[in-house]
Simulated assay, not measured.
Amino acid sequence: MTSRACPCGLPGTYDDCCGRFHRGTVGAPTAEALMRSRYSAFVKGDAGYLLRTWHPRTRPERLELDPRMRWTGLEIVDSTDGSAFHATGTVTFRASYRGGSLHERSRFERVGGAWVYVDGEFLD
């Protein structure tokens, strides 16, 4: 186990933050928590977690991550719904990487009580 800071930007260690979601110890309680854990999975190169948390309707058969990609930060711009009281939610974020950034509004739904990523719309 590691005591390094979590890549998602929240205070705390990776093990206590997104690492517990990646290990399957608990599920992400909100759409924003799932978004943060998915960003951390990109940073860690955890394609298995990304596929497990992708909606079955939109999930690709496989996912190949570029090991040369260096993610450098996550900023949550907006979050709508996506709490324990909702069935859907959106999270708008900016994920920085060496050489640029990705700005996206992601949609999430609950499937069997668990939050999953449905799809995203790239923003300018």
Rank of each mutant, 00 (worst) to 15 (best):
D66Y: 11
R38D: 03
L63Y: 08
F42E: 00
R4H: 09
M35Y: 04
R52V: 00
L50W: 12
A28C: 09
A31M: 07
T25H: 11
R59D: 08
P29M: 09
P67D: 15
T13L: 07
R20S: 13
R23F: 00
C8H: 03
A47T: 09
T25F: 05
G9F: 12
S3D: 15
P11G: 10
T30F: 05
L65C: 11
R62H: 15
P60R: 13
P56R: 11
A5G: 00
C17V: 15
A28T: 04
M69I: 12
R68C: 00
G12M: 09
T25R: 10
M69V: 14
G45C: 10
D46M: 02
P7H: 09
W71Q: 03
C8R: 03
W71L: 06
A47K: 10
C6W: 05
L63D: 04
R59N: 09
D16Q: 13
A28Y: 06
R62D: 15
D46W: 01
F42M: 09
S37N: 07
D16A: 15
T58P: 02
D66L: 12
R59H: 10
R4G: 08
R57K: 14
M35H: 04
G24L: 07
T53G: 02
A47E: 09
P11H: 10
G27T: 12
L65P: 11
T53I: 08
V26S: 07
E64N: 13
S40G: 02
R57V: 11
E32F: 07
F42G: 01
A31H: 06
G19Q: 09
R23P: 01
T30L: 05
T13Q: 01
A5P: 08
R68G: 13
P67M: 13
R20G: 01
